[in-house]
Design a protein around this nucleic acid. Sequence first.
DNA 1: CTTGCTACTCTTTTT
DNA 2: GAGTAGCAAG
Length: 713
Amino acid sequence: MDANLFDNLNTAQRQAVEVKDGPVLVIAGPGSGKTRVLTSRVAWLLEVRQVYPYRIMAVTFTNKAAREMRDRLNRMVGAARANDLMLGTFHSICARILRREAPLIGVDRDFTIYDADDQLNVVKAALSELNLDEKKYKPGAVHHAISTSKNELIWPEDYKPDTYFNEIVRRVYEKYNAILRANNALDFDDLLTEAVRLLRQNQTVRDRMQERYLHVLVDEFQDTNIAQYALINLIAGRHRNLFCVGDPDQSIYKWRGADYRNANRLSDDHPDLSVIALDQNYRSTQTILDSAMAVIRKNPNRRHIKLFTEHGQGAKVVVRELFNADEEAQYVVDTINELVSQQAAQAGDIAVMYRTNAQSRAIEDAFVRAGMPYKLVGATRFYARKEVKDVLAYLRIVNNPADSISLQRIVNVPPRGIGEKTFATLDEIARANGMTGLEVLKQGKLSGRSAKALGEFSTLWQQWVRLRDELNVGQLFDHVLNTSGYREFIQDGTEEGADRWANVQELRTVAEASGDAPLSDFLSDVALVSESDNLEETANAPVLLTLHAAKGLEFRCVFIVGMEDGILPHSRSFDDPEEMAEERRLLYVGITRAKERLYLLRAFRRGTYGPSEVTNPSRFLDDLPAGLLDGKSRKNAALQADVTRWKGSAAAPLSSYNLTTEFKAGDRVYHQKFGEGIVQRSIRQRDDEEVEVYFDDGKIKRLSAGISGLKKL
DNA sequence: CTTGCTACTCTTTTT
DNA sequence: GAGTAGCAAG
């Protein structure tokens, strides 16, 4: 049995697995088997140390990672033990704890979990209750401030506003939380903060949890936030067996509150912390590792790490410039075909990664044109689709009649003659009396034109709630869809309607799979699914995903597209060195996903929206040593591009190239979107001219003379 | 109350 | 260029 536990682990990894009890931090580079070490440690605790499974808590970054860990443990120690572990993401584990202790935190067991979309609606509701203007205080910005506070465990009463805007935030924050509680709901952040608050304030619960969890293990530790850090320290507070695994260089979720300095806190808070480093890489060729190190080395304040492998040098990194996003996508598709036909890789071994979801579109188009299958992770996420959210909202109001955000969503979908005004009146009465919408409707207090429509809806709603405990989730799903009129509403005979109905059916399959489990469990699970969850291993097709979603995955061949300043690094990071460092880590994560082949691509022109503009190569390309590359890094990159692709794309033939420019420094110019400005300089770019203009409103733009429609005044 | 039109803001990244 | 918020008319 022991041999099985350490199968394929080397000495260093084994030492990490068998490290003595107490606080431990494993700092491990990419591809060093971090997750395998963590999994083996769990298996070893169960098998060798004979720890009861329910006394172990293991936290993963995604649900998918949790599932994979459970599968592996099933094989290693058997399902009987693996199933009793407390295993999942921070959010799912907290949801489980809070569901059990719900009365202690002021909600009941059937509380709804609000996602980003719902949260924004709550902010809007709070703003309107406070008579604040949405235009002046952007709901997104206010919500971001609230979410940041929650992740740092700052409650409304502790919130110290230092600006006028923050004073507004404080007021909205208070109201926002009040609305959540009135709706019997918690938001994503509450799952963490309320769990921390519960453990801090309730000694009975704290004692029970601390006694129970003999071992707490955390994967992807570099992406934990303050609340998560507090939580694991609380839970492990008694036995102090805290086993954290992570890589500071792969911290890419600062914008979500992740704080890689938690590693420093860990050593400050635990003077007896054992630190273990794992530097050997089992994934990539040396060329890929050297490229990755060349990129990450430029970041300040990092522990120097030298990654090494026994895999040999391998192929050079291919750097290419293509004309525009479409040709970039075509290059990806063509190269994949080549790789597959040369048997260098199977389709399923290949990934295409990008910085922003919007970039997937051109790639998808190219795959569709070529008639090739692909797997898309995230983007127009299944659970973000309107029809899916609508159906879930129906189920939510059945499960939790206090959920006014969901009620608002579907009360007039399909149109029943219950408009905005009517809903507002209903909601007001409910709030004023501390009642749920359903209770108000039952009393039939609303009169006037809409009374009849409200009465009919009330009858339906009451019937659904009665049936909630009689039918299982699948049956209830069908019943609600049939009686609400939503089915006919979606199936309107159009092609789009058929697509939407197919999505509803897909959701039904998920509902059906929950069997006789309570409705609240189903809704909870659905609220906490992650982007990469729908990545099934079966289909042998290339994967399209964002760099963020690529974390923890590996592929034989990786294409990273959009290697341009403004995309990667993203333009939003230009004026903040911390954010720029995170962009660099993001590229580092992307590069280190590749086992054998890496392609770094960029487009000479790219359209964000509107006409396409000339781009600049990513500054990160400069950091790659020429010796590792097939193609030039940056200087003269254009000359490397396949000349034939440029033909017919714009004006002049190649032979007519000269150095004269239409615009000269100092020219007064006009642009339709940006207004008037002065030309700083203008440079010949192959068959076009790149003009840098200082506009009167202070903006500096680089425009294409041919496409932008720039005029001399 | 609903429908249909125009105008405007977006694009980081997601548990 | 696209999705939606806001508005006017029916």
